[in-house]
């Protein structure tokens, strides 16, 4: 894959945001607009952009006030700061009053790379999905990200969008549709299902190809909407395939795997192998090396599926 074909979802978000044709949209950033890519919006619509400085809590509260007065604010920062630092502000000033604020967390997961543990947010899905009223989206490629940013703008209510700085390949075509509350099934494999979200969906698709060559036919379900989650897709896949896996660039505590396990437990109890960061902090390194180190790259996924296949035989 050539580098030119790889795009980080933060970039897709920045472009999609600048293109939204709605005067009600306002954007707030906390001294990171070149990193979160809200700079594209700031350049195009300076009168609707607010540089809040390094004060995320204030940014989130200001967004709440703007939303209560009819605006559609997008407040952006790194995932660790906008969710971790501002949890109580999000809980009390946005989720509880159900205000129409879009929270954007770029730089999620270990693929942040060299900046290390403080900047590698691995608990944000867990925290955001536990909040009543909050929608949690985590797109996996350029096209799904752009479309979900548009969907989020149309939706009236608080949404957290989890994005990545790690560049990943295109997965979808322009005709593909992405709806809040749905997942996207890729392949019809009957041997197993890999549920995945965000920047590791592409790793799962590579694993899917490798497994196919080995005679194991799995489907990949891109769970870009973590809350609400596509229960039908989970139940259908649990019924149609023997092995179930979840893969996420996030802690296995409270993340995508947990969300899927909750659906399975209630509807069709079945073993789920959760692949993610195993209740530990991240560390510095190159993103590719970290994916391997933490066992969420293509090779590790193939290995886990093979292990499970062995157990079943």
């Amino acid at each position: 894959m050539d580098d030119e074909e790889l795009i980080a979802t933060r970039e897709s978000f920045g472009k999609a945001l600048a293109d939204i044709d709605d005067e009600r949209v306002v954007v707030l950033d906390a001294d990171l607009d070149t990193s979160t890519k809200t700079k594209y919006f700031a350049e195009k619509h300076p009168d609707r952009f607010f540089e809040m400085g390094i004060s995320e809590s204030d940014m989130v509260g200001t967004a709440a006030g703007l939303a209560s007065s009819g605006k559609i604010p997008f407040a952006s920062s790194f995932a660790s700061f906008i969710t971790g630092r501002c949890y109580d502000q999000i809980r009390c000033s946005i989720a509880y009053p159900n205000l129409n604020v879009k929270l954007i967390g770029t730089h999620s997961g270990i693929t942040v790379g060299e900046d290390g543990a403080t900047h590698q947010m691995l608990e944000d899905i867990s925290m955001m999905r536990t909040l009543p009223n909050m929608i949690v989206l985590c797109p996996s490629d350029d096209i799904s990200c752009k479309k979900l940013v548009q969907e989020a703008t149309k939706f009236n209510g608080p949404i957290y969008i989890r994005l990545s700085r790690y560049k990943t390949p295109l997965i979808y075509d322009e005709e593909d549709e992405f709806e809040i509350g749905k997942g996207y099934q890729i392949g019809e494999g009957k041997d197993g299902t890999i549920f995945a979200t965000g920047d590791v969906v592409s790793e799962c698709l590579e694993a899917q190809d490798v497994l196919k060559e080995m005679g194991i036919d799995v489907r990949v379900c891109d769970m870009y909407s973590i809350k609400p989650i596509d229960k039908e897709l989970i139940i259908k896949s649990a019924k149609e395939t023997n092995m179930l896996f979840s893969v996420e660039d996030h802690s296995i505590v409270g993340g995508l795997g947990s969300a899927i396990a909750e659906v399975l437990t209630t509807n069709c109890p079945k073993k789920l192998t959760r692949i993610g960061i195993n209740d530990t902090f991240g560390k510095s390194g190159r993103p590719e090396d970290l994916l391997k180190y933490f066992g969420i790259d293509q090779e590790a996924i193939v290995e886990k599926v093979m292990e499970e296949k062995q157990k079943q035989n």
Binding site: F50, S57, D58, M59, V60, G61, T62, A63, A64, G65, L66, A67, S68, S69, G70, K71, P73, D88, Q89, C92, S93
Partner: peptide
């Protein structure tokens, strides 16, 4: 948290 929210309202105004 109130002053941040009030600022947001005042900005919208």
């Amino acid at each position: 948290q109130g002053l941040s929210v009030a600022n947001g309202m005042a900005l919208a105004s």
